[in-house]
């Protein structure tokens, strides 16, 4: 399925884009994260959470959505 992936904060600096579309056939969020880890090596050292269709989900969740967001924590104030 075609998935749109949005990157926030310093994750967008790792991927060098804020948004991209990927053709992906895995079944869970975790599969997708692994695929992204292979695509972007330094993503492995980053902490982030995932939203699927605007809802935060854990990594074991079934991949159903067409929009995924990778969300890192921010420290600044």
């Amino acid at each position: 399925m075609l998935i749109t992936i949005k990157y926030f904060g310093l994750i967008a600096e790792v991927t060098n884009t804020e948004e991209e579309s990927l053709e992906f056939s895995g079944t869970t969020i975790s599969d997708l994260v692994n695929a992204l880890h292979s695509k972007y090596d330094s993503l492995k050292n980053k902490d982030f959470q995932i939203a699927q269709n605007q809802e935060l989900v854990d990594f074991e969740t079934k991949l159903t959505g067409d929009e995924i967001a990778l969300l890192p924590p921010f420290a600044g104030g």
Partner: peptide, 25 residues
């Protein structure tokens, strides 16, 4: 519930280290 535990130390820089546009805060 959003971020269960803090990120690895020093992996996320703050404003004084990386800068911030003044109007954002």
């Amino acid at each position: 519930c959003l971020f269960p535990s803090p990120p690895k130390k020093d992996t996320v820089p703050n404003c004084s280290e990386i800068g911030v546009i003044g109007v954002l805060p």
